[in-house]
């Protein structure tokens, strides 16, 4: 009897067990609904016509599959004064995210490797100094960054945002790879050194191929962070170079004309779809990034 109880609240048989088990699932499913309802509302609202929205309720399902709000959000919704929809801004986000993720991940791997497998004097100090950059409130760098971007001629451009995201992503990517390489045996590196391989030889031929899991975690983390960023986008870009998060906020807050809630929701789905898709496809790696981002040391 007692043996059965070891790893759970309810493990006894009988009606009490069934009741408790039922209660457990009821609570778990209730919370599933709590997290899912906003998503359902978002999708169903985006498929309704404005008349349906005004007559129906939040939870009523659309009468048919009307994708016209999606077409409007993608191609002709007004973002500020320009009415070309979200499409150009989605491309801005892609052009910004891909290079920033690639560069910051590669440099993070290289630095994490140098800091852990070639432990020189002061390596831990440098790491601690760099790590601090992952936790500062970015408000403290906004003003000097705006001036630096202006000085470099990158103010209000997508390359400017690539620079910003690379620079402030480095602390995280270095952290991820350092934590990964600490768990990798030094013997492999030493064996390669005995074979005459140098710093870069070992990095590209030995270390990098075995860090695929760390690379996947880092890429997903950086992709999510950079795609979802709003602060840098709104502070350092204007109009045409806005990333999609800033454009979405502008669509929602455009005050001219009738408020098109269905278009707002379709625009929100378009902006959220890439990171959501990555989460659904590679959820396990996303969760690992979250716990690594929790500074597990």
């Amino acid at each position: 009897m007692r043996q059965r109880r070891i790893s759970g609240i309810v493990h006894r048989r009988g009606p009490r067990h069934v009741l408790m088990r039922g209660l457990l699932f009821a609570i778990l499913l209730l919370f599933c609904a709590y997290y899912l309802v906003p998503l359902v509302v978002m999708i169903s609202t985006s498929l309704k016509s404005l008349a349906e929205i005004r007559e129906g309720s939040l939870l009523s399902l659309p009468q048919g599959l009307d994708f016209s709000a999606w077409a409007t959000a993608w191609g002709s919704a007004c973002v500020g004064v320009r009415c070309d929809g979200l499409e150009p801004y989605v491309w801005n986000s892609v052009l910004m995210t891909v290079p920033a993720v690639a560069i910051s991940t590669f440099l993070g791997a290289l630095n994490g490797y140098a800091l852990t497998k070639w432990r020189f004097r002061g390596a831990d100090w440098i790491f601690a100094l760099v790590l601090f950059g992952a936790f500062i409130p970015f408000q403290v760098v906004l003003l000097p960054m705006a001036r630096t971007l202006g000085f470099l001629g990158l103010a209000g451009t997508v390359p400017g945002l690539i620079l910003v995201h690379t620079v402030y992503g480095l602390a995280f990517t270095t952290l991820f790879f350092r934590n990964f390489f600490i768990g990798v045996s030094n013997g492999i590196v030493q064996a390669a050194m005995v074979d005459g391989a140098g710093f870069f030889g070992i990095f590209f031929r030995v270390v990098l191929p075995m860090s695929i899991p760390a690379i996947v975690v880092t890429v997903i983390w950086q992709f999510t962070q950079i795609w979802n960023d709003f602060l840098f986008g709104v502070a350092f870009t204007i109009g045409d170079s806005n990333p999609v998060t800033v454009a979405l906020n502008n669509v929602v807050n455009t005050s001219t004309g009738v408020k098109q809630y269905n278009v707002d929701m379709a625009a929100a789905i378009i902006a959220g779809l890439p990171t959501l898709a990555v989460y659904v496809i590679a959820g396990a790696y996303f969760v690992r990034g979250l716990s690594a981002g929790a500074i597990k040391g």
């Binding site: 906003p38 998503l39 509302v41 978002m42 979802n228 707002d264 929701m265 902006a271």
Partner: peptide
């Protein structure tokens, strides 16, 4: 269930804000 509980973390706060503003 875990996947369902955690998916909002993958969304941008702007998306979350837009949806809740509507709700």
């Amino acid at each position: 269930i875990r996947t369902i509980y955690l998916y909002p973390m993958a969304l941008s706060f702007i998306v979350t804000g837009t949806v809740w503003k509507w709700i």
